[in-house]
Amino acid sequence: MLILQSIILGIPQGALYGLMAFGISLIFRTVGVMNFSHGNAGMFSAFIALTVFLLTQNLLLAILCAVIFGILLGFLIEKFLMRPVKHLSHGGMLIITLGILMILEGLAQIIWGVNPFSFNELVSGPPLMFTLGEDGLLILPLNDLLITVISLGITILLAVFLKVTKVGIAIRARSQDEVGSKVVGINTNMIDGLVWGIGISLSALVGVLIAPKTTVTPTMMMNMQLYGFTAGVLGGFTSLYGSILGGIILGILEKIVGIYISPDYQLTIILLIIILMLAFKPSGLFAKKFEGRV
């Protein structure tokens, strides 16, 4: 019973991890940068949502603003920071994303301070309950259900976008061969900006969806980013859909650890999984061979 409950609670959480990993993977696959500022970019967007919400009391508008801001932020990061070092060094790109991570945290501290703000759930109301057998009772909060639906919906939408639209195919083409995509006339800088925009807007979305649970603070996305990485590692960064699946597995695993062992060790154990996975199967659970970019 308990295990079923952990699964039910784990899926919405895992869907968010998956969304996080999806954005990170998309950027990594296409542009070749592991974005360590991913979480904080989402955090900053969540603060934008908070501000808009406090001004307008309109939650949907707030979320929309956060997502749009995320797209913008992604474009800016690509244009001004990543483009100059694109072909120079992986180390350089890595350190720049770490720099962005720190800057965003510092900026948020200056603008909004370090005290947490509460953020509304999308829907409130009594959770759904199912009775199972004699005395089994499963609880599914409405908001969690909605989060799952949104996450999966967005994933499917993006999958379709990447599969059938011309720009979507161009993104995939760019991720496979930069020179090849240039010579067919793809504006690779534009594609890179777009990918950064999409990736970060996903983090922004995760930020506003998780905000009711974490509250809005400058460090709210720190763990989320780690989980995103873990989900990505589980799914194998080179497979976008693996990311989602990896996220959901991770979400369930987390709940199981929390219930059966101790919430104190949740993060540590999850992180050990990352390290072990990276050490023994860096290609992820689903890929056959390791073909990741370094």
């Binding site: 995939r172 083409a173 496979q176 061969d177 090849g180 010579v183 067919v184 006339g185």
Partner: peptide
């Protein structure tokens, strides 16, 4: 002005059809 580069540079993960579609990306 179209270049057909050395070492083919086809998009290996895309289908043949998608590759050709990318060929007419701009013109």
């Amino acid at each position: 002005i179209i270049l057909c580069p050395e070492n083919r540079r086809v998009f290996s993960g895309l289908s043949v059809e998608e590759n050709l579609k990318m060929g007419s990306y701009l013109r």
